[in-house]
Design a binder for these strands. Structure first.
Length: 569
RNA sequence: GCGCCCGUAGCUCAGUGGAUAGAGUCACAGACUUCGGAUCUGUUGGUCGCGGGUUCGAAUCCUGCCGGGCGCGCCA
C-alpha cells in the first residue's frame, strides 16, 4: 500500500503545483493526508487535500478536486478516481496493485510489513519491575504482556531493542521482607521442641514478632519452610540481627526465581535484570547527584539535597537525599535513568502502573536535568485489570495477601488467551478480564477466532498437498480476484505494514490485536464464500496464493503478540 | 484544594479534525452432499455525559459543569 500511496502523493502534489502555476498563485504544499475511507463505495484511498487547499486557490473544494482528479486519473494502479462528498478525492485501486501486494507478501514472508522507523537505534523497554516482595499478580501480568509486545513491535519496525527488569532490592521493604520471613521461620511447628528435648528452649515464636507492616502472604511461610529444610533450626539460637541478612537474601532470591519462572512461562524473556542495589554498590548515586548539581538542578537546604523541580512544571522542589543521608527513591530513579542513557540507549521506555502517573512529569524533569531531551523517555501507563468471573467481579485485596496471581490466571486460561486479553484494549483504559470468556473455546473468544483462521489456512494447504496440488510459484495477477471477499481480504493484508507502523509510533499493542481479529474475520468470510481446491486451475492457483499470503500475515501478527499459531486445533 | 485519565449501542470497547459514528457480545432468522460449522450471512440497537465556543467540517480541539477512577510525603 505504501509505495502506491507514495506514488499517488507525488502525483497529487505535482497536480497541485501545476494548477498553481497556471493560476499564478504561490502555494506551499502541506503534507498530503491519505487515508482508507470507511465505506467501500468511497474507494481504497482518499485524500481531503482539495478541501484544505481550496481557499488558497480561490476555488470551491469540489471544483479543485475535479481538476486534481483529472490530472492524476491516468495511472496503471488506478481503476478510477471520483470526487465525492464535500470534496474528497477517492481513488479506486486497480488489479495491478492487488497483484503487487500479494507478490510483496509472498516474496518477503515473515518480513512483510517490517519497517525501518528505528533505523537501528537502540531502545530499552523496562517493564514489570515488580518489587521482589511477593508473586506477580494480574496487574503485573498486563504490564508484562504490554511491555513484551511493544518490544516485539519496536524490533519489527527497525529498533534495536533490549528488555529490562528493574529490581527494587534496596531500601526498607527488603528489611521488612527479611523480618517477615524470620518471623514465619520461628513460627514453624517443631516436633523436637514439643518432646521437651531443648533445655534452653531458644526460638519461641515470640522471639521474632511479625512486623507491623509485614508481608502476610502464604508464600512467606513456604520460604520459611524452605529455609528450615535447607538450614535446619540453627537460626533459632542466633541473634535476629545476625541472621537477618540471610533471611533477606534468601527470600529475595526465592521470590525472584519465582518471578523469573512465571515470566518465562508467560513467554517473556528479559535481556537484563538490573539491581537497584548495584547502583549503590557502584557508587553511582553520588555521581548522579553531582551531575545534577553541576547542571544547576540540585542544591542543599536544611541538611538535605533537593531537586529543583520548580524549574520544570512541578509546584515544589523534591528531596533527593534526606537530611539523615538516606537517598530517596527519586534519587535512585534519576541515577538509574542516567545509567540507561550512559549505556548508550537512544530512547528509553518505562512501563508503569497508572497509579504512578503523578510521577511521570518529575521523572521527565529528571531526565531533562541530566541533559537529555524529555522526549527520549516515554512512560507508558498501564491501567488496572478488573478480573471477572461470569460477569461478577473477583475480589482482590493486596493488603490481606488475597490477590489473584498471574500464575493462577495462566493455569486457568493459558498463555495465549491471557496475552491477548491483556492487550486487546488500549493500555491506558481499564480492562475487564473475564476468566470464563477467556477459557471458552468458541466464537466469542477472539483468541480462538484468530487461531482458528490460521489453522484453517494450514488445513487448506495440507489438503492441497494431499491432493497433489502445489502452490504455484508464478506471480499472481491481481485481476484473478474479483469477488468482494477476495478484495476485502487483499486490502486488509495490504494494511498490515501501516498498522505495524501505527502500533510502533503509538506504542499501542491493541492496534495489532484488533488488526489480527479483523484479518481473521476477512479470511473466514472469504473461506465461507469461496471454494479453493477443485476449482478451475487458474482460479484455484490464485486463491491458493491468497490463502498462503493470509497465513503469512496471520502468523506475523500472532508472532508480534507472542501468541502461538497452531496448525491444528 | 490542585493535577492526570476516562465518560461512545443493553454490556465490553474501537474510532482523537472529515463523508451516513463502527466491531464484538446478547437476541432472533438463515447458510456448504466436496477444502475444519471453534465458521459464515442477515435483522434489531446511538441526545458520542451536558452546555457553550473554534472550524467549510467536531465523538475528536478549547472552555464551563456533572459523573467515575487515580495521584499529589525528607513513603516505596
Amino acid at each position: 500500500m505504501n509505495d502506491v500511496q507514495e506514488g499517488l502523493r507525488q502525483r497529487v502534489r505535482e497536480a497541485l503545483e501545476e494548477i498553481a502555476r497556471v493560476k499564478g498563485v504561490a502555494v506551499e504544499c502541506p503534507e498530503l493526508v491519505f487515508e482508507k475511507p470507511k465505506r467501500e463505495n468511497q474507494g481504497d484511498l482518499s485524500t481531503n487535500c482539495a478541501m484544505q487547499m481550496c481557499k488558497v486557490f480561490g476555488e470551491s473544494p469540489r471544483a479543485l478536486a475535479e481538476k486534481i482528479a483529472a490530472k492524476v486519473a491516468a495511472d496503471p494502479y488506478l481503476d478510477r478516481v471520483e470526487v465525492a462528498g464535500p470534496g474528497f478525492i477517492n481513488f479506486f485501486l486497480s488489479s495491478k496493485w492487488m497483484g503487487e501486494v500479494l507478490a510483496d507478501i509472498l516474496d518477503k514472508g515473515e518480513r512483510y510489513g517490517a519497517r525501518d522507523l528505528g533505523k537501528g537505534r537502540r531502545v530499552q523497554v523496562e517493564f514489570v519491575s515488580a518489587n521482589p516482595t511477593g508473586p506477580l499478580h494480574v496487574g503485573h501480568g498486563r504490564g508484562a504482556a504490554v511491555g513484551d509486545i511493544i518490544a516485539n513491535i519496536l524490533a519489527f519496525t527497525g529498533w534495536s531493542v533490549e528488555r529490562e527488569y528493574y529490581i527494587n532490592d534496596a531500601g526498607l521493604q527488603m528489611d521488612i521482607l527479611g523480618r517477615s520471613t524470620q518471623s514465619r521461620y520461628f513460627e514453624l511447628d517443631r516436633p523436637a521442641r514439643s518432646t521437651g528435648t531443648g533445655s534452653s528452649a531458644p526460638g519461641c515464636p515470640s522471639d521474632a514478632p511479625f512486623p507491623e507492616d509485614g508481608y502476610k502472604g502464604e508464600y512467606i511461610h513456604d520460604i520459611a519452610r524452605a529455609i528450615r529444610d535447607q538450614e535446619g533450626d540453627r537460626f533459632l539460637s542466633m541473634p535476629l540481627g545476625e541472621s537477618h541478612p540471610f533471611f533477606k537474601a534468601f527470600a529475595v532470591r526465592n521470590i525472584l526465581d519465582t518471578i523469573r519462572q512465571i515470566l518465562a512461562d508467560f513467554g517473556v524473556r528479559f535481556d537484563v535484570w538490573f539491581s537497584e542495589k548495584s547502583l549503590y554498590e557502584r557508587d553511582l548515586v553520588p555521581a548522579a547527584m553531582e551531575a545534577l548539581k553541576v547542571n544547576g538542578f540540585a542544591f542543599e537546604k536544611d541538611g538535605a539535597v533537593w531537586f529543583k523541580a520548580t524549574d520544570f512544571t512541578d509546584e515544589k522542589d523534591r528531596v533527593l537525599i534526606r537530611s539523615n543521608g538516606v537517598p530517596t527513591y527519586f534519587a535512585s530513579d534519576i541515577t538509574y535513568h542516567k545509567e540507561k542513557f550512559d549505556l548508550g540507549f537512544d530512547r528509553v521506555i518505562d512501563v508503569w502502573g497508572a497509579d504512578h502517573h503523578g510521577y511521570v512529569p518529575r521523572m521527565k524533569a529528571g531526565v531533562e536535568a541530566l541533559g537529555r531531551s524529555p522526549d527520549d523517555l516515554d512512560v507508558l501507563l498501564i491501567q488496572f485489570v478488573n478480573l471477572l468471573r461470569d460477569g461478577e467481579q473477583v475480589a482482590m485485596s493486596t493488603r490481606s495477601g488475597q490477590f489473584v496471581t498471574l500464575r493462577d490466571v495462566l493455569d486457568e486460561v493459558g498463555v495465549d488467551a491471557t496475552r491477548y486479553f491483556f492487550v486487546m484494549r488500549r493500555s491506558d483504559s481499564h480492562l475487564d478480564f473475564d476468566l470464563e470468556l477467556a477459557k471458552r473455546q468458541s466464537s466469542d473468544n477472539p483468541v480462538y477466532y484468530i487461531q482458528y483462521a490460521y489453522a484453517r489456512v494450514c488445513s487448506v494447504l495440507r489438503e492441497a498437498k494431499a491432493r497433489g496440488v502445489a502452490v504455484p510459484d508464478a506471480r499472481p495477477t491481481g485481476s484473478a480476484y474479483c469477488s468482494d471477499e477476495e478484495k476485502r481480504l487483499l486490502s486488509r493484508l495490504a494494511e498490515f505494514p501501516d498498522e505495524a507502523e501505527k502500533a510502533s509510533r503509538e506504542l499501542a499493542p491493541h492496534v495489532i490485536a484488533n488488526y489480527a481479529l479483523a484479518l481473521a474475520g476477512d479470511f473466514h468470510s472469504f473461506y465461507n464464500a469461496h471454494r479453493i481446491l477443485g476449482e478451475e486451475e487458474e482460479v484455484m492457483n490464485a486463491r491458493l496464493l491468497l490463502v498462503q499470503a493470509a497465513g503469512t500475515v496471520l502468523r506475523s501478527a500472532l508472532a508480534l503478540l507472542g501468541i502461538s499459531a497452531p496448525e491444528r486445533m
